[in-house]
Simulated assay, not measured.
Amino acid sequence: MTEPRRLGARKHDLAPGQEARIRDLGRAVIETEAAAVGALSERIAADFVAACRYLLACEGRIVVMGMGKSGHIGGKIAATLASTGSPAFFIHPGEASHGDLGMITPRDTVLALSNSGETAELLTILPTIKRLGVPLITLTGRPDSTLAREADVNLDVSVTREACPLGLAPTSSTTATLAMGDALAVALLESRGFTALDFARSHPAGTLGRRLLLHVGDIMHRGDRVPRVALGSTLMAALEEMSHKGLGMTAVVDGQGVLAGVFTDGDLRRALDQGLDVHHTIIDTVMTRGGITAAASSLAAAALGLMESRSINGLLVIDDEGRPIGALNMHDLLRAGVV
């Protein structure tokens, strides 16, 4: 594989054999952390179920706390909980003792992270948490630590060793804590009956959110922007309407405004292949009768699927009486991020 080059980039010269050593270290880290996560599966037992019971019974929010690297992991766990149906937020323990404890209410549940179980900032606010009477769930690497003993439930996230060769930098321990947090979030998600639609509602800007929440009526062209001609119009009139509206098609409607058919770029090519006179040919003879349509209430993703399955680039949108009220094409779906 060709090594990537970047203009002006600095590159350290490696001693003979150092490349292999770097690869070995990288693999060792992955293997060590994988083993740490794998060991957690045996600890998904009564304590894990008890923790989930407390979290499911929480009438307020799950307050996640942790210092240092545990704090970074705690922030991610809080975000995962919140996005999967369990309202949660993160409080920095250092700031908690300077006023942020006021964010915790008696309806909340505290989830505290500390590998040592002796984090000073958490121990400082422990009496206040106890006085509030809120359930305390801890994730620690030492089941005999102060935090673990004071908790209503402690989940053991201890690891045999860190992946850091010095045994100092939190690596395996933070990975194990994150995995346990994910396990809690997913267990709660399932227990709450959280669905893909619920997930989409909390991720409206994401691809899934757009596919599950965006409707045809949200992105279709409306009013005068909908191309339409009447039955009996000439092919030239239809072409002018298509050119003016720029959607590659036009609706053909009867005297009551009900859709009678559709004329598309494909129909035009077929008409030209037959040598038809665009000035004298009546649109009724070359349109596609009925046509493929959608409802404004349909999901945009469903409209995309319909267009792909029928190999078409546009759709007319009709109301309950069959009157065209909108139109959209593949470009509209692309701009909306559905494709």
Rank of each mutant, 00 (worst) to 15 (best):
G8T: 03
G8L: 11
D13E: 15
L14D: 09
R23M: 10
E33Y: 01
A34H: 04
V37C: 00
G38S: 07
S41M: 11
A46K: 12
V49L: 14
V49G: 05
A57M: 03
C58Q: 09
M67D: 09
G68T: 10
G68H: 10
K69E: 13
K69R: 13
S70G: 12
S70K: 02
H72L: 15
G74I: 09
G75S: 11
K76W: 02
S86I: 07
A88D: 05
F89M: 09
P93L: 07
A96Q: 05
P106T: 15
P106Y: 13
T109E: 07
L113C: 05
S114N: 10
S116W: 00
E118A: 04
T124P: 01
I125F: 04
G133P: 09
I137S: 06
L139Q: 03
G141Q: 09
S145N: 01
L147R: 11
L147C: 07
A151M: 04
L155W: 05
C164G: 10
G167W: 01
A169T: 14
T174M: 01
T175Y: 05
A176T: 12
T177Y: 00
A179I: 00
L184Q: 09
A187N: 12
A187P: 07
R192A: 02
G193F: 01
F194K: 02
F199R: 01
R201G: 02
R201V: 08
S202P: 00
S202Q: 14
R211C: 01
G217H: 09
D224C: 00
P227W: 03
A230I: 02
L231S: 14
A238Y: 04
M242K: 11
M242Y: 05
G248C: 01
G248S: 07
V258W: 03
V258D: 12
G261H: 10
F263T: 12
A271D: 12
A271C: 15
G275I: 06
V278C: 06
I282T: 13
I283G: 06
M287S: 08
T288F: 02
T288R: 13
G290D: 15
G290A: 15
I292F: 11
I292S: 13
I292L: 15
T293M: 06
A295K: 13
S298Y: 08
L299M: 13
L299Q: 13
G305D: 14
L306P: 06
L306S: 13
M307F: 08
M307Y: 10
E308P: 00
V317Y: 06
R323E: 07
I325Y: 03
A327Q: 03
L328I: 02
N329V: 02
D332Y: 05
R335E: 14
